[in-house]
Amino acid sequence: MAVRTKRKKTPRDQAGFRLFLLSLPFLVGIFVFSYLPLTGWVYSFFNYKPGKALLDCEFVGWKWFIAPFSNPVLRGQFARVMSNTLGINLLYMATMIFPMFFAMFLMEIPFTGYRKLVQTLTTIPNFISWVLAYAAFFALFSTEGLLNNLLVGANLLKTPVNFLMNADHMWLKMLAYHLWKGLGWGAIIYISAITSIDQEIYEAVAIDGAGRFQKMWYITMPHLMPTFFVMLILQIGNIINNGIDQYLVFSNAMTQDAIEVLDLYVYRYGLQQGNISYATAVGMWKSLVSVILVLIGNNLSKKIRGSSIF
């Protein structure tokens, strides 16, 4: 393509155009499902009421974009939602080193069979949906769950308590659920990185008298740090991105305020309460900030990868 100049159409060009036509249905699909929804952003400039045609609705300009900062009620909500979003995500980021330690200590176990077993069983939670994950915690902590059975059986509790309805330390609980689901899976990339470390290095330091923890600290960890930093930086793009599932399943009348994150807020306002225009505007703020963060993360990662891996 680079050498393409204004000459007559060659058979090669024709073949290239045929390829384009063959993949055209797919390109149309991409357009419809990724680009066309962008036109939905115009709804945020109107006072849209479901059931009416958009053009019959009042044009309000930037009103909905300013609303989360100017309207006192919305400002309160927005501040709470943003603090939940950032708080929970910063906790996730702070614990991103855990999978690395998981992998390092797992590889210390001298029995291959046991190691495989741990790896297999701890990865399972990653492959189930949040509904099933919730079912697991429901079985443990709900009024009819295991914990209540045991506590009531031992006379420590008179009447069963639904622990899932308790909003104390909600961020930490979300972190715990998140780690339960993702720790084993997150470790896989570090495990394969450890297996690719040259064994001779360990032999060399063993001769120098290095013990187990010295090997971990001076050899294994420095080898894993580049991977860790890349993962950390890529996470920057997701810092206001939570997804809805995890928060939707764990939210109820009591916990709602403590775990309502940005995505869930948009869903509630837009699809449940029908305030399409406001929800779209908040979603656009989110998209905008996300794209900027992704770009920052990508640039940082290029720099880090360029300088520290080789």
Binding site: D13, F20, S34, P37, G40, G270, L271, G283, S290
Partner: peptide, 28 residues
Amino acid sequence: EYWHRTIFYRFVIITMYFSAGVIPIFLT
């Protein structure tokens, strides 16, 4: 030999980096 390969390939790949958001997708 794909016709304007770079342009169309970018057209596809760039969708990884943005999303219109839940509500506009719902409307679409």
